[in-house]
Design a protein around this nucleic acid. Sequence first.
DNA 1: GCTGGAAACGAACGTTCGTGCTATTCTGCA
DNA 2: TGCAGAATAGCACGAACGTTCGTTTCCAGC
Lengths: 205, 205
Amino acid sequence: MKGERTRQSILERAVDLASLEGLSGLTIGRLAEELGMSKSGLFAHFGSKEELQLATIDMARERFIDNAFKPALKAERGYPRLMAIARAWLSYVKRDVFPGGCFFAAASFEFDGRPGPIRDAIAKMMDNWIESIEKSVRMAQEEGHIDPDIEPEQLAFEINAIFFGANFSYQLRDDKKSLDRALQAIEARLESVRLVERPRRRRAG
Amino acid sequence: MKGERTRQSILERAVDLASLEGLSGLTIGRLAEELGMSKSGLFAHFGSKEELQLATIDMARERFIDNAFKPALKAERGYPRLMAIARAWLSYVKRDVFPGGCFFAAASFEFDGRPGPIRDAIAKMMDNWIESIEKSVRMAQEEGHIDPDIEPEQLAFEINAIFFGANFSYQLRDDKKSLDRALQAIEARLESVRLVERPRRRRAG
DNA sequence: GCTGGAAACGAACGTTCGTGCTATTCTGCA
DNA sequence: TGCAGAATAGCACGAACGTTCGTTTCCAGC
């Protein structure tokens, strides 16, 4: 069907626009104008503004996973993958995968105080993301690469916080050093919990 | 003048509303309705929507300084003040000084991709805020409390990032542990650069 | 008590918002 | 090639937006 193709290209543009103007600033009229199509024609693909917003989040999620997460999975589990996650995320910001910076960082702060399906969708996405980091931390512990007494939730919290801080400095303060600062911070933090001697066997315990 | 009093109360409400709905979501009609006054009467105090937004940022800045920064200045300079800054900021979030979480964290992510006077005002506020942290780091170095080889910009970057991460987890993920996690992260980081032996004299060098 | 200026009001402006209808055009299959 | 159904356009709607205008209310100084 041609409709599906159109729908996809609408959403690609919607993601870019929402990344710059916010999910609330995403407007059907503006979006239709940019795509050179009618409001009603575009609208028919979604049925409501909220559906469009939810579909946009979904599309953004795919782009995020492909560009910020999946590349890190090529690194071997454990310490190397944790560092790969950091590098992949910072690279994803540097490459302007979203024109307005990390889509979900912005969306998180935009909707954290507005209950409803949109907030829920963003929260679910972020929960999964944080859990992915926690999982990588646990694997690094199982591999014997880092201190098993570290709480994975704590370390994941800190890593994610550095990501947000980097995005902030990079986007608002035009601080080009911020991505390097972030990498340095994460590397130092991981180094502080690294185990060098006597690595455990895989899946020990 | 009565006008000034009215203006102040308009702005107090505007700050709360913008904290929840965003600075763009701040609407003259809605604001007037909540205050039980007419749109035109309210509008006359500012002259334009943008002026209202800028005045709102200014009012939010005052509230931020009073609640998140000034309390920390009571602590003695050096290491204690750095920890006080962390505690004051986290307390400011916990006390819901802004109903939607940190006003400037949200505003930063909302306007980082939209050039203009509003973005400029937010960026200036955040520049000052980061500089305040950097200054406190430098003082702690002058006091001989922490490693003088640490880049103040790097440490300030990390501290601010943890703040953002805490606000995110607290507001979007309803993670009540996040404020404790943030304090733990900052404390551990500061501890890692702390000097215990041979504190230098005040304003040495 | 009167008056002048500040403050607030109500109504309306033109624009844009999301959302419905109805008609037309396009497209993939028989 | 023709036809069914999908896809898109055109048009209109009510509501909300920021803004302007002329008027009314309020209060301080004479």
